[in-house]
Structures are given as C-alpha cells and as structure tokens.
Design a protein around this nucleic acid. Sequence first.
RNA 1: CCAGCCGGUCGGGCGGCCGCAGGCGCCAAUGCCGAAAGGCGGCGCUUGAGGAAAGUCCGGGCUCCACGAAAACACGGUGCCGGGUAACACCCGGCGGGGGCAACCCCAGGGAAAGUGCCACAGAAAGCAAACCGCCCCGCCUGUAUUUCGGUCGAACCGACGUCGAGGAAAACCACAAUCCCUGAUGUGAUGGGGCGGACCGAAAUACCGGCGGGGUAAGGGUGAAAGGGUGGGGUAAGAGCCCACCGCGCGCCUGGUAACAGGGGCGGCACGGUAAACCCCACCGGGAGCAAGACCGAAUAGGAACGGUGCGAAGGGCAACCUUCGAGGGCGGUUUUCGGCCCGGCCGUUCGGGUAGGUCGCUCGAGGCCGGUGGCGACACCGGUCCCAGAGGAAUGGUCGCCACGUUGCAGCGCUUGCCGCUGCAGCCAUACAGAACCCGGCUUACAGAUCGGCUGGCAAU
Length: 164
Amino acid sequence: MASARAWLPPVAAASSRRAATGAASGFPPKCGRGAGALTGPSTGDAPQTYPARLTKRAEFLAVRRGDKRRGRLFLLEVLDRGDGGPPRLGITVTKKVGNAVVRNRIRRRLREATRVYAARDMAPGTDYVIVGRRDILDAPFAALKDELARRFRGKALSRTLHGQ
RNA sequence: CCAGCCGGUCGGGCGGCCGCAGGCGCCAAUGCCGAAAGGCGGCGCUUGAGGAAAGUCCGGGCUCCACGAAAACACGGUGCCGGGUAACACCCGGCGGGGGCAACCCCAGGGAAAGUGCCACAGAAAGCAAACCGCCCCGCCUGUAUUUCGGUCGAACCGACGUCGAGGAAAACCACAAUCCCUGAUGUGAUGGGGCGGACCGAAAUACCGGCGGGGUAAGGGUGAAAGGGUGGGGUAAGAGCCCACCGCGCGCCUGGUAACAGGGGCGGCACGGUAAACCCCACCGGGAGCAAGACCGAAUAGGAACGGUGCGAAGGGCAACCUUCGAGGGCGGUUUUCGGCCCGGCCGUUCGGGUAGGUCGCUCGAGGCCGGUGGCGACACCGGUCCCAGAGGAAUGGUCGCCACGUUGCAGCGCUUGCCGCUGCAGCCAUACAGAACCCGGCUUACAGAUCGGCUGGCAAU
C-alpha cells in the first residue's frame, strides 16, 4: 500500500525544477531566507503531508508578484501557477527578526503547523511564501495553526466549500 | 562559618503523540522524473550541535594561481629570556616593573648619547638652559625701633623739664611716666648730690620695613604629566655634587645563571627630561587567493572548429592598389547600371572542443577522543590499549503536550541564633542563560541564568 503512493512527490519536485530560471545568479547575501522541509511521501492522512518546497531565489521572486495577505503573525504571498499541480510552500525569515536560533525556531514552528494542520487548506497549482515575524515565537501554537489555515484558504475559501 | 583567589566539570531530566537527516541491513522495483549528468521508495536498527557551534582576530592543513624552491625594495606583522608546538600574536617556566595583608593578579616589556618631530593648557622658563616670586651680598635713598652721647624743655629779670609725696596749709588731682637713696641746716625736711621719668632736637651704632641699582643663587614657593638626579649631613653671605654618606644613573671588572638578569666591590661627579600605541632604527617572520577553493559530468540557446552533402558566387564582410586629404574627394579602368582585383561567405547533417543553468564529488579517520604507563616543575612528548563520535546544503538535528527537578515572587504556619534567617505547605510566574555545525584543526576574543567539584589565602570560633 505504501509503495503505491511513492511516486507522487517526485512530480512536485520536477515541477519546481522546471520553474527555475536563470535569474538566480547567486545567493542573496543578507536578507533572503527561504526555508522549507523536504518532500515526503503521504502516509494516508492529509494533515501529515508537508507540501513541496520552494528553493530557488527565482521562485521566491516570482511569488512576490502574487497576492499578498497580511496577517498578525506573518505575511503570506500567493501565486497561482495555473498548472493545477501540487501546492508548494516557501518560508522566509529575515535577519532583522533575530539571530539564527530565533529564525530557526520561527521556521520550525511554521513548518510544523503547516504539516500537521494547515496543509489541507492549500489550493492546488499554487505557490505560497510565508514571511515570518517575531511574534510567532511567543504565539500559542493553536493560534498559529488557525491563522495559517485561515490565510491559506483566503479567497479560495468559497471554492473549497463548494467542492465539499 | 565568613570573605576572597585559582583551576575544572555540567549547562535541564523522564515520558506520550507526530516528524526530519545520515549510515548499515533487508524488502520492493527494472519502474518513475529528467535531453543528459543525475535524482526519486518502504521496514528495522543505529547516530544526530556548542562551550562558546558566535565574532572571523591570528596560526596551520587542504585546494588553485603565480614563480627562478632566488634576492632586493616596498608593505604588513612580531618584539624581555628559555622552552613547548605543524605553526602562532597561543601555551608553559623564569626575569624585570606595578598592585594586593595574602592566595594571587596586571604589563604593547627592543632601541630615545643615529636622525627628524612633538610636549596642549598652565607656567618666568618645555630642552638652549634660563630666572617670576623668593633667598643672600654690596651701594644709595626713605622710614621705624633700640642703645649711647650731646643739647633743649613757655610766660619782664634771676632760677626752674618733671618727680623727690599720705600731720597741717597751699597747690594740684580724682589720677599716677617717675613717686627712690644719700646728705642733714636757719632741723619734720632747707640745701646739695645722685637716682628715676617724660617730650623734643642733633649725631653715631645696631636691627628692621620699604624703594632703586649692581651682583650671587637654584635650597624653597608657584605651574605642569614632566622643571636639569633623590634623601640626610657638612659647607656657605645665601646657595649649589661645592664636599661627604646612602640610593639612583653611567662605565668597565668579578661571581652565579643556558639566558633575561641578580649580587658584589671599583671608578666617574651627573654628563643623558618625556614620547617609538609620532616618523624612524635594529632583529626576525610573511608570494596571492580561498570550499562560492577546486575536480568531474553536463543541457536548451548563441557562437567556434573539422568533415560530408547541397548550392554557388546574391546580400553582406574583410584585404590590397595611383594622387591628395583631418575628412569629403580626385585619378585610373570598364561602362546599360547603384560597377571593379583577391579572400570569406548560404542551407542541411555528423563529430569535436570551450562553456552557462543544473548535477556529483570535495565531505569527514583527524596534528582525533578516552584509559593507562614513562619522562618532564610545567606546557608537552613518547609508548601501549581501546573507540568511531553530525555531515546538512536556502541548510536536518525538531514540533507539541504532560509530569518532575531547579529558580523566583506572594501568602500562611513553625523554629530560634529576631535576621535582607532557616524549614514546611499552598498559589502564581518562568518552565530557562548565551546561543545553531556549513571544509577541517590549534588558539585568541566576546556572550552566558544557574548548578557543582577540587586546591589555596586571610579572618573568626571550637578542639
């Protein structure tokens, strides 16, 4: 049963590679900090799946052209790729927020909240970039996951409901 | 027990649920993604951040580049001595200086008689030595005091500065500047002499104040971070290395030490201010860049080369040729023309090389950890045994919940040595500080809640 599902994630990885352009001439020296987890196989329940990651600088820059949904804890940028493939996620925490320990912790909480609770609310064919803020450090985990799920649904809320 | 110094270790624990990355084994598959390089599963076991992983300040390994395995200049660094080390700006042991009662701590600690520069403010003067106040001597002037000597001390004339005193008178005073002695008649105080006291004048001497001039000084004052050795004594008009002792300094000698240096005695008589984290001089060291190093694989597109096929000198480009020119131009030849000699040149296919995106490697066994022994005061070295201990890559090592420990705050109770005390219970907070490997080592520096171990010093108490 598990082996049958094994082929799905590589599709996502391939699509991300195709989206890469030559614009990424180098690493951003200071500010740009993308983060993400690794592609993993689905184990049955949707909440335990972490989406495909954005890794290239060009991909992050592309999402910046999309919609921006400002939240209390973070800024969410959304771009519809239009290909209907799996959703992808990138996380950015700038150096202005804090030192490496603080940035790591913010990134990990965001990733875990997405993996466990909010990934099901992401729309297919869409790239998301979360720009984390320092408040995430002290925010209750429940509040974080609710905020995340609400922002993911965003405009697509009605469509999701309609589908159900 | 209190106060302190030095060194070391640790820096939350247990559990539930859900996850991530590496390694090994087994299973699955011969698939899927990609043009290729290459990448992509499941299960089990196992491993998975630090003392600073930080700052990126030194020293190396490693890699590439340059080169004559060179030297010099420049530039940069280091700077007491000896040792350790792969090396160092690190470490250890000493020396010197400074601080502390002590344990111990701190020091950018070569050269200032090679040269140049600087020394603000203040101060008379900041490097040539001089002299503001002061001190001393001499001369002159003025004044004061004292002593001595001489003279003078009102009222026609003569005498008289005053005093020369307690019975009366007179006079005078309401207080003394002096207020005593001798003589002893015309005898209770005459006379004379002395003493005492005052004012003034003059002279001299001495001392002192002040002024002016000349000279001698650098002890003292004052300014300063620093004032031309320090302290004491002698000496002197006052002073001064002027002389002496000790200390300091300089020179050379002896002794100890591998050396830095220490000790001793001798000579010199002070000449030589500070600053080298000012330039500088001396000695020694250093080629440059860094894992985004570098190696390999390697598209699409564009461009390059070779070969083959096709096509053919069209567009276009390059070169050469007479005169002149900055250039435009002219000449010559040919001529229907927007012309000219030579070379390259289009399209298709195959192959090759460079190389971008991308991918893989580099990538963790190492000047390695632990234990023991030997040598050494020690840093450390050597020997033996044993272990394998993160390798990610826009970056894993986690998220969340519960309990506990620790801490802290408040309340209540108890205890006494009544205190910023200890213990117990309950409740709240925090549930930890600093901080996240990025090629790897050795250091340095900086940050850090708290816990804990060992050694040492000073004090108090007890034995």
